[in-house]
Simulated assay, not measured.
Amino acid sequence: MLRRRARRAPEAYTGAADPGDPLDADQERRVRAVLALGGVPQADLPDGVQQVRLRLLERAASGREAPRDVSAWAAVVASRLAVDWHRARRRQERLGERLAALRRPELPSGEDDSLLSLAVARGLDELTDAQRQVLVLRFYADLPVRSIADELGVPEGTVKSRLHTAVRALRARLHEDEVV
């Protein structure tokens, strides 16, 4: 009977009150506890529980066999999510430190420098988020292309392409404003 139960759709083997919910109340409490013990802040716990639900539903939708012990499987997924949360936070902190180190204590006071700064700011605003991100990381944070690709989780060629397009657009904007 246990084998038959494990092979059914997620709603059938979890015993959840809501037939569409792959986690029952006990399993959800366990997932929350694992996330909290893993250092995930209280405010982020609902998102973590939803991620576990989503992964369980994706597993069922892909036709893979249901986990033998949904509660244990969900706890393992929750512990991995906690690790991922810490990694993402550390990446953000490192990026913040790099950007803080780039700030100059004294800003240029000349009129030409002010016009150039204003034109660059306008040009950056016109770029897509992805283009602006790689441009800032490459030229302001002085990161190599490989590091940018690793941090963003994209191929190096994508970073190079975005950089090329962003530089070209920014250069055109600076020529258009007759600053350069």
Score class of each variant (00 low, 15 high):
residue 179 V to I: 12
residue 63 G to P: 08
residue 163 L to E: 09
residue 116 L to W: 08
residue 15 G to F: 02
residue 163 L to P: 08
residue 168 R to K: 14
residue 163 L to R: 11
residue 7 R to H: 13
residue 86 H to R: 15
residue 90 R to V: 08
residue 8 R to E: 14
residue 118 L to K: 00
residue 22 P to W: 01
residue 105 P to E: 12
residue 24 D to C: 10
residue 20 G to I: 07
residue 7 R to W: 08
residue 131 Q to Y: 14
residue 64 R to P: 02
residue 176 E to F: 05
residue 24 D to E: 09
residue 36 A to K: 14
residue 99 L to G: 06
residue 70 V to P: 04
residue 158 T to F: 00
residue 82 A to W: 09
residue 2 L to H: 14
residue 138 R to T: 07
residue 123 G to W: 04
residue 114 S to R: 13
residue 174 L to G: 08
residue 141 A to T: 09
residue 166 A to I: 02
residue 22 P to N: 05
residue 154 V to M: 06
residue 156 E to W: 01
residue 47 D to T: 10
residue 10 P to M: 06
residue 177 D to L: 15
residue 161 S to T: 13
residue 107 L to I: 03
residue 171 R to I: 00
residue 18 D to K: 03
residue 126 E to A: 14
residue 156 E to L: 01
residue 63 G to Y: 08
residue 32 R to P: 02
residue 177 D to H: 11
residue 33 A to M: 09
residue 155 P to G: 15
residue 156 E to R: 15
residue 65 E to K: 10
residue 119 A to H: 03
residue 100 A to R: 15
residue 4 R to I: 12
residue 122 R to M: 09
residue 86 H to L: 07
residue 117 S to R: 15
residue 31 V to W: 09
residue 85 W to K: 04
residue 171 R to D: 11
residue 160 K to Y: 03
residue 81 L to I: 13
residue 76 V to C: 05
residue 40 V to K: 04
residue 130 A to K: 11
residue 71 S to R: 15
residue 150 D to F: 03
residue 27 Q to M: 14
residue 143 L to W: 15
residue 26 D to Y: 05
residue 112 D to C: 00
residue 143 L to A: 11
residue 28 E to P: 07
residue 118 L to Y: 05
residue 88 A to E: 14
residue 56 L to P: 03
residue 174 L to P: 11
residue 180 V to H: 01
residue 127 L to C: 04
residue 39 G to A: 08
residue 15 G to N: 07
residue 129 D to E: 15
residue 167 V to N: 05
residue 154 V to W: 03
residue 145 V to K: 07
residue 41 P to H: 09
residue 87 R to F: 05
residue 170 L to D: 05
residue 122 R to E: 15
residue 119 A to G: 12
residue 91 R to C: 02
residue 55 R to N: 05
residue 120 V to L: 15
residue 12 A to N: 08
residue 78 A to D: 10
residue 116 L to V: 13
residue 81 L to W: 01
residue 36 A to C: 02
residue 35 L to W: 08
residue 25 A to D: 13
residue 11 E to D: 13
residue 177 D to P: 01
residue 109 S to M: 06
residue 136 V to A: 09
residue 32 R to S: 15
residue 128 T to N: 03
residue 172 A to N: 10
residue 109 S to P: 00
residue 158 T to K: 07
residue 6 A to S: 11
residue 58 E to C: 01
residue 85 W to P: 02
residue 13 Y to R: 15
residue 20 G to S: 13
residue 151 E to W: 00
residue 165 T to C: 00
residue 110 G to L: 05
residue 23 L to V: 03
residue 68 R to T: 14
residue 24 D to W: 01
residue 172 A to T: 11
residue 76 V to R: 09
residue 30 R to P: 00
residue 6 A to Q: 13
residue 28 E to L: 07
residue 162 R to M: 05
residue 172 A to K: 08
residue 152 L to R: 07
residue 127 L to H: 07
residue 74 A to K: 04
residue 112 D to F: 08
residue 78 A to H: 06
residue 147 S to W: 00
residue 34 V to E: 14
residue 98 R to T: 13
residue 98 R to M: 12
residue 46 P to H: 04
residue 132 R to W: 03
residue 124 L to M: 04
residue 20 G to R: 11
residue 1 M to L: 11
residue 155 P to V: 10
residue 32 R to E: 15
residue 148 I to Y: 11
residue 60 A to V: 05
residue 78 A to L: 08
residue 38 G to K: 05
residue 80 R to I: 04
residue 160 K to F: 01
residue 130 A to Q: 13
residue 73 W to L: 09
residue 160 K to R: 14
residue 179 V to R: 02
